[in-house]
Amino acid sequence: MDGYKIFFVVPITVIVTVLVFIGVPSITLLVFSPDYDVNVDARIDKQNSPIIGQVLIQNTGSQPLTNIIVDFGEGDILDIGTLDNLHKVILTPPADNKMEFVTVSTDQTVIVKKTYREVKITE
């Protein structure tokens, strides 16, 4: 009888453990993620000549974001349209822009303003 316990108890224990460590975090991401949210990461590399800037915009919500407007400052505005959930885009600011801050806004009243952070950008 003890041999049968090993064949039944061990696999069930492994399955339950895997479900707890993989399934529960996945469910909480789906259940607790906001409908509309965006992550903005503005980076600048001043060590290169010319100075290189990048802006990563990622839809971290569970619904698409529409009419996304990127304001690089100094009158440089870009309309990137719609971004589906979990998709991202990397933009380069105009070459003559001072790259001090960037503001991203959407139709869903999501507004994020970020200051550029200095990093080494590899190409």
Rank of each mutant, 00 (worst) to 15 (best):
G3R: 10
K5E: 10
F7M: 09
F8C: 07
F8Q: 05
F8W: 15
V9T: 14
V9F: 12
V14D: 00
T17I: 09
T17G: 12
V18S: 05
V20C: 10
F21D: 06
I22L: 14
I22P: 01
G23Q: 11
L29N: 13
L30N: 13
L30K: 11
D37S: 11
D37I: 00
V38S: 07
N39F: 15
N39C: 07
V40R: 08
D41F: 04
I44G: 02
S49W: 06
I51M: 01
L56E: 12
L56I: 10
T60S: 10
G61P: 04
S62T: 15
Q63N: 08
P64E: 08
T66F: 02
N67P: 08
E74A: 09
D76T: 07
L78T: 14
G81M: 05
T82A: 09
H87L: 03
V89W: 02
V89D: 01
P93D: 03
P93F: 05
P94E: 02
A95E: 14
M99R: 13
F101K: 10
V104G: 02
V104Q: 06
T106W: 00
Q108H: 01
K113S: 09
K114R: 15
K114N: 12
Y116Q: 03
E118S: 11
I121N: 01
T122Q: 11
E123Q: 15
E123S: 14
